[in-house]
Design a protein around this nucleic acid. Sequence first.
DNA 1: ACAAAATTAGAACAATTGTTCTAATTTTGT
DNA 2: ACAAAATTAGAACAATTGTTCTAATTTTGT
Lengths: 193, 193
Amino acid sequence: MNTKEKIVVAALGVYNREGIRTVTTRQIAQEMGISAGNLHYHFKHTEDIIFTIFEQLQRDYDEMVVLFDQKDTTFQELLQEFTEGSYLLINKYKFIFVNFVEICTWIPAIGDAYRTLVARREEQFISLFEHYSKLGMFRQDIPIAILKGFVRQIFIISDFWYSSFAVLGGRFESDALEDYRQTIAVAFYPYLI
Amino acid sequence: MNTKEKIVVAALGVYNREGIRTVTTRQIAQEMGISAGNLHYHFKHTEDIIFTIFEQLQRDYDEMVVLFDQKDTTFQELLQEFTEGSYLLINKYKFIFVNFVEICTWIPAIGDAYRTLVARREEQFISLFEHYSKLGMFRQDIPIAILKGFVRQIFIISDFWYSSFAVLGGRFESDALEDYRQTIAVAFYPYLI
DNA sequence: ACAAAATTAGAACAATTGTTCTAATTTTGT
DNA sequence: ACAAAATTAGAACAATTGTTCTAATTTTGT
């Protein structure tokens, strides 16, 4: 692992632990035992570090989403995969979820990338629901407008569940996964058969 | 309106417009045409301003919640009131919702107050749902665990809807209220009769 | 009317921050 | 083996920030 990669790893760790408000590039450098000058040789601006982390998140997400393509699984299995997969991402990139609005205004390219991603995700989910409707595992009597709203709801919950959990004082990681699983399960509860 | 009150108003405006990341006490002072020294005469620390704004939010919230007590309204009417009332709050105190996790770690007293509020809210909602179950306006076949999860879900949605809306590029206020109304409506959709 | 208290502006302070510059050291390609 | 390129540490810079200090002005209570 070269220095540039190490910086990304260290930055992710520090940001997740302390948030973006108080963390400085000096602190990241110190934490990994290099000079601040060296850090800025690899990343001219702080934004560049955060953008690189976001790109990593996107790659991780795409990797996870590939798993949804085998449509021979039951809906319950798919839901289980979605829950575990998205939890891993949320947990790994906490600080991005927690500071998402701020980051998107600070670094517009991230906001743009997110909006593209969401548009893609939306269609994916809708067609998935329609597929499982036909298989009798998802309610068929839901109007399309509600279905779209439900997808939006799932996005809000998965994007901001961690913020809510953190603010409610959730500390232990074991609790966290269970809490997330329960939250997602409840959201799907009235739509499953 | 005395200077102290004016500072709170100005700060709220600037924070909502530009977020807490880049805004300085100097900027708030300049915006309202007073000196930074004067501002810090009234509020020794920046945290004190934000804490005061949060107290205001709490008072506004309590005022809104009183309206829920007349239980002779239909559930639809109540829902309508909740949607409009909470939207007004969210819109007025945007920056608190957007930076909630950060603010809660920065100013622990705010986190504590929020957790107390949530506990109260939770019971209120549950008993409201039970009341409307008996009146046949809310599904009676929902297990209590799911009901509690549903309340949590409503909290996540109302606390973070604006973050999602902002990040998705929502700009116009007219769109915003409609979007929020729709999001809340969809969440309740499967639970109403 | 006037002394005491409150308010205000603006300079000053001390700390911090992102970033650049310089010179040394290490690595790489041939 | 050696020149060129890449990497590194640390000093230096320039800007900013929250906050304090000082002296003047305004307001308040009697």
